[in-house]
């Protein structure tokens, strides 16, 4: 067995392969599980899935590239997923966006390593709290230029703390 995946992951993969009617159905949950563990899905993961679990690499790659939540690049510690859809646009997404960008640029000026990566995502399904953003798995609602910076600074302290 491959040493690429930890025993827990291997156990989870086996579980998912058994859980659904077809092995193929397990591709999405397995990729989620790998991403939760490693932050992103590497080429070697896809190849290992084919080698050890007979999930064809083309099928896995198709799924991996089709769905927007999967990452194929090394992530930063905090993945900022800012909704840029209708309601958020009306409710001040642009100000939030520029506030975030301003904050991220500070890292550049200071020459510090930025722990954030910013992504625009479609509607997060929380339009009553627009503008909304997901940081990793935590939802932040009713953002504006001020509170978003506070949230980012809070993350900052977490980042430097660890």
């Amino acid at each position: 067995m491959s040493s690429l995946f930890s025993p827990e992951i291997r156990q989870k993969i086996e579980h998912y392969l058994q859980r659904y009617e077809t092995r193929r159905s397990a591709i999405l949950p397995i990729l989620h599980c790998i991403q939760d563990e490693y932050g992103w899905v590497k080429e070697e993961h896809v190849l290992a899935l084919e080698e050890h679990y007979q999930l064809p690499r083309v099928q896995v790659e198709e799924v991996l590239t089709f769905y927007s939540m999967y990452r194929q690049q090394e992530p930063k510690q905090f993945r900022l997923m800012l909704c840029d859809n209708l309601v958020c646009t009306m409710m001040g997404y642009k100000e939030v966006d520029s506030a975030i960008r301003g904050h991220l640029q500070e890292y550049q000026h200071k020459g510090k390593d930025c722990p954030f990566s910013l992504e625009k995502v479609p509607c997060l399904g929380v339009c009553d709290g627009a503008p909304a953003m997901l940081i990793n798995k935590t939802r932040h609602l009713n953002l504006d230029a001020n509170n978003v910076v506070a949230i980012l600074k809070n993350c900052d302290t977490l980042a430097t703390g660890t």
């Binding site: 077809t22 799924v63 939540m69």
Partner: peptide, 25 residues
């Protein structure tokens, strides 16, 4: 059972959802 999507609006279409549940695009 529960099955989680992975970020695709089109999976809200019933046959898109079925494809996704089958582990496809």
């Amino acid at each position: 059972d529960h099955y989680g999507g992975a970020g695709a609006y089109i999976c809200g279409e019933e046959t898109g959802l079925i494809s996704s549940l089958e582990g496809k695009k």
